[in-house]
């Protein structure tokens, strides 16, 4: 065991996978010598050489497209997109190609690749270094969408994603890169995709969250506990494919649900969670489902702390559904 930050755990995860399997390659803008703009890939080119870890031209379309070709032809590419905000030139390759290759070829051609990219706010990055675009991708059949929130999960989910036979979009909560630390096992291990992690037990209110919202929901739950409300906090970890049975099971336990994400509300992931519960477990609900989310606006800069859900807003929603 080592005590690592989330960023160090990702670095360790990539190195572990690359040591284990020579077909794993890593590339993107500035990932080589510089070790990535956040230093997530630091030391990887030094250890594995510039044939397995290298910089690319500045084209996300090229990065994702090339990764697809590599994956078709026997490599296990990890493609880094410097910020999720810059993924959109590669959107066509992800949505039209990576996600549909297996389906359109009857599994003759497949696409076992991972696209890693930092997402989310909290670094004063304004419109284009802060976005949470998971909903765009969760609308894409054939793709998996994974978001860790602890160092342990970051490494285990990343290795599982690299070993997965299908394309995975691995969204890294950049606000947590250095702010969370935890015990991380050495060497190879995986965390199963499509499993929910219980962050905190509680019988009164259920809070579903993921990524950078997990510590915020946990903090709000702490405050709720002081007021006598026991909150069950759940980290979804894999948004697609989602553990729907798990969602329903946890929702039924309390009958009072809050969903938290920093992405905008309209057509956001919280809408899907609410719909699944409404369709399958409405009779268990004691209160309307509440969503605490970013606003339906672009992401601001100076006022980002008002845009991002904080413990205050989450606690307010917890109290609201509890008192209903």
């Amino acid at each position: 065991m080592a005590n690592l930050t989330l960023l160090q755990a990702l670095n360790d995860g990539m190195k572990t996978a690359m040591r284990q399997d020579d077909s794993v390659v890593l590339f993107g803008e500035d990932v080589g010598l510089r070790g990535g703009v956040f230093l997530t890939t630091e030391g990887i080119q030094q250890e594995f050489g510039s044939e397995r870890c290298f910089d690319t031209p500045l084209s996300e379309d090229g990065i994702v497209g090339a990764a697809i070709g590599m994956a078709m032809n026997g490599l296990r590419p990890i493609a880094e997109i410097q910020f999720q905000d810059f993924i959109f030139p590669g959107f066509d390759q992800i949505v039209s190609e990576a996600a549909k290759l297996r389906y359109r070829s009857g599994s003759q051609y497949t696409c076992p690749l991972v696209i890693r990219t930092p997402y989310g706010g909290g670094i004063r990055g304004g419109l284009y270094h802060s976005q949470s675009g998971e909903a765009y991708f969760c609308h894409t059949a054939g793709l998996k969408v994974v978001i860790p929130s602890t160092p342990h999960d970051a490494k285990g989910l990343l290795i599982a994603s690299i070993e997965d036979p299908d394309p995975v979009l691995f969204l890294e909560p950049k606000a947590l890169y250095r702010s969370v630390k935890g015990e991380v096992p050495e060497g190879h291990y995986t965390v199963d995709l499509t499993t929910i992690r219980e962050v905190r037990p509680g019988k009164d209110v259920t809070v579903f969250c993921y990524g950078a919202m997990v510590p915020i929901a946990a903090k709000a739950a702490e405050q709720a506990a002081e007021k006598g409300i026991e909150v069950n906090v759940l980290d979804l970890r894999t948004l697609l494919p989602l553990d729907e049975d798990g969602v329903l099971e946890y929702a039924k336990r309390t009958g009072r649900v809050v969903v938290v994400h920093e992405a905008p509300r309209f057509c956001g992931f919280g809408g899907e969670i609410s719909a699944i519960i409404a369709e399958n477990a409405i009779e268990y609900m004691e209160a309307p489902i509440a969503r605490v989310t970013g606003f339906d606006t672009p992401f601001p800069n100076t006022l980002e702390h008002h845009y991002l859900p904080d413990d205050r807003r989450v606690l307010d929603a917890i109290e609201h559904v509890h008192a209903f």
Partner: peptide, 11 residues
């Protein structure tokens, strides 16, 4: 340079 990528990596 494009951040840390020299022009030879670009074209």
């Amino acid at each position: 340079w494009a951040i840390s990528c020299p022009v030879e990596e670009q074209t």
